[in-house]
Every structure is written in structure tokens, then in C-alpha cells.
Write a protein that binds this DNA or RNA. Structure first.
Lengths: 181, 181
DNA sequence: ACAGCCATGTAACTCGTTACATGATTAC
DNA sequence: GTAATCATGTAACGAGTTACATGGCTGT
């Protein structure tokens, strides 16, 4: 009956709160397609460990099914899981987002290299942003205005705004670099 | 001659690249005042460990001075440290920022609670943002337009823009919650 | 005298990663 | 047949945290 799980556990538990039962493998896929935009996408082995822990805590129920020659383990959220999750979403104190922004760190240390190098880091970042933005846009489109995914859609919109901001900030930083010459 | 250090090591090494020698304690203070806005602020004990490692690698040089009855260990970046840092800033592949955004996660899971609870999470977040923004604004002001801190100032501006974006995104999310009623 | 900050670390632990290992199913 | 994907895990490690422990200096 351990409480106060790490946030990643709640994140995975949360993926099971949308109604479907999922295998650890599928959980990882959903994490890559959704959590990744505002949270860390946990490694496969991490997902297996977390799923096992949630099952131990009784927050999810595991069902083994035989699919031909192999056994597939599927997880479903339990009543207790649902209420534990709700309590966390409702009552946890807000904690401030943590950013691990390597590009910003390298910009911060720009004085140790020539500006053209920093400039090219920003260009690479802008290219990477383009890809992420396309991925997220696809996710957002798939959510549509289905009321079941309204909360997810809100976060997707937030993410789209964030990426757009990152683009403009990177472009702005690049232009101040160009001005400096 | 270990290479490819974790980014946090480069971050701390980078704090020593601004010209001053610092104790581990001061390193922690500088990290809290600067890195914190776009990177994790490492725990005190973490800083001590990293400082020791950097010294072992020859990237920083430690000097012990006697200050009355106690010994104070001060770190300065070495030539090798400076070139290692520059090589990382210049040549490391861009890696995409990772966000650990608990508020977004809770918004994502909004369907498990009543909207008013999600709404209050957003309000708490807006209040926290206000504080952060004030802190960062003070940092930004202290940098002025001193050319020695031009790169740092660019990142501070980026951060200010980010917090402003977060405010507008949180307000927007809050207003779609209100509309839903 | 006492509080609060400066200063330095160690120990134990958790989170999260990469590497390793295995094997069944599906599509070409 | 063979490659890709589905599926499940273990082992070893590294990053980062909190708790613990110590003691000097500084201001009131």
C-alpha cells in the first residue's frame, strides 16, 4: 500500500484511464505518442518495471491471455487505481515544470565558441522542431473534438503552442547572433 | 581521459567558463540562479560529486585555501576544461529538450476529476509562474548589456518568453475549461 | 548564546538508461 | 526463408535525490 508514486507511474496509470486495457508494449507505444510531448518517454524496460509495480500495488490488474504459442499480459486500471490517480491529479501540490534544454544550455555557453557554431546548433534545432511539430500536429488531428479526449486535446494544443514559441525564440536568438557580426 | 560527460557536468563546467573561480557551494548558488531556468538545478551533494569528478578529469583545478580555521576548496577551469567544453558546445548532436511538465500531465488526465479541480491546478501554476518570472526578470536585469554576458542574456530572454508563453497557455486552457460549463 | 549562513562531504536509495537475452507472429 | 514487429523480461549501471553528519564564521 505504498503511496506517492513517482509522476511517471501516474503517467502510465493515466494512459490506462482512457478506458482501454493495454500490454506493456502498447503502453510504451502510447507513451511515445502522447507523454513524450510533455513528459519523458520511459524506456521499454522501465515500462515493464512500472507496470509490474502498479500491479503489485493493486492499481492495475494483469490478465494473461494465450495468443497461439505466446502469453500476452494485459493491464487494466482498477477502481483503486482510478481513485488513486484522481486523488493525485486533484490534490498534489503543483510542482514547477523542469526543462532539460540542451540547446538553451549551449546557447548560454555561446561565449566559448564562434557565433557561427552556435548559429548552426540553432539551425539543427529548428529542423528537429519541424519534425516534432509535424508529429504532434498529427496526434492533435487524430483527437479531433471527441469529448472523450478533450483533456488530451487541450494538452496537445498547449504543446503546439510551445513548439511554435520555441521556433520563434530560436529564430530570434539566431537573428541576434547575425546582428552581432 | 573519460569523455562524453553528462550534460549537467558541462553545465557546471560552463559556470566556471565565465572567468571566476568558485567553490562547490558557490557553484550551487550560481546553478540555482541561472541553470535552474532551463536545466535542472542539481542537489548540493550532486555538485560536490561533479566538481570532484571534473577535477579528476583535469577539466578543473582545485585550490585549497585556509580561511581561518577552515579549508575552502576553490575550482577554476583549466585549458583542457575550456577546450573540452568548447568541443561539446560546438559539436554535440542537437538533442531535443525534455520537459517534465507535471501540470500538463495533470491537465492531460483531467477527465478523471471535476473541471474545477483542474482549474485550481492551473491557478496554482499561474501563481508559481508569477514568482519564477520575477526571479528571472531580476536575473535578466542584472545581466544588462554587458558583452561578457551576452550569451547568458540571450538565454534569459528566451526564458522570459517561455514563461510568458506558459502564462498564456495556462490562461487559455483555463478559459476552455470555463467554456465547457 | 543562538540563529543562520558558509562549507564539505558520505550513505543509501530511487529513477531511468543501455545492453543483453529470448522467442513468437506477421508480411514480403 | 527472412526481416520487421510484437512481446517479455533481467542485469548492470549511471544520474540524481534525500537524509545524515560535521563544524566554522557572522551578525544580533
Amino acid at each position: 500500500m505504498g503511496q506517492q508514486l513517482p509522476a511517471t507511474s501516474y503517467a502510465l496509470l493515466g494512459l490506462l484511464s482512457f478506458g482501454q486495457s493495454l500490454t506493456a508494449y502498447q503502453l510504451k507505444q502510447w507513451a511515445d505518442a502522447s507523454l513524450r510531448f510533455f513528459w519523458v518517454a520511459p524506456a521499454m524496460s522501465h515500462v515493464y518495471r512500472e507496470a509490474a509495480r502498479l500491479a503489485e500495488e493493486g492499481l492495475v490488474a494483469a490478465t494473461d491471455a494465450r495468443d497461439g504459442g505466446r502469453v500476452v499480459r494485459t493491464y487494466a486500471i482498477t477502481e483503486r487505481g482510478r481513485s488513486t490517480l484522481a486523488a493525485w491529479v486533484r490534490d498534489a501540490p503543483v510542482d514547477f515544470p523542469v526543462l532539460k534544454h540542451t540547446v538553451a544550455l549551449r546557447l548560454f555557453l555561446g561565449h566559448v565558441v564562434d557565433d557561427e557554431h552556435t548559429r548552426s546548433v540553432l539551425d539543427d534545432y529548428l529542423a528537429a522542431l519541424e519534425h516534432r511539430l509535424a508529429d504532434l500536429r498529427a496526434v492533435r488531428d487524430s483527437l479531433g473534438d471527441d469529448p472523450a479526449f478533450r483533456s488530451a486535446a487541450r494538452v496537445a494544443d498547449w504543446g503546439l503552442g510551445y513548439y511554435a514559441f520555441e521556433q520563434s525564440a530560436a529564430r530570434e536568438a539566431a537573428s541576434t547572433l547575425d546582428d552581432a557580426r
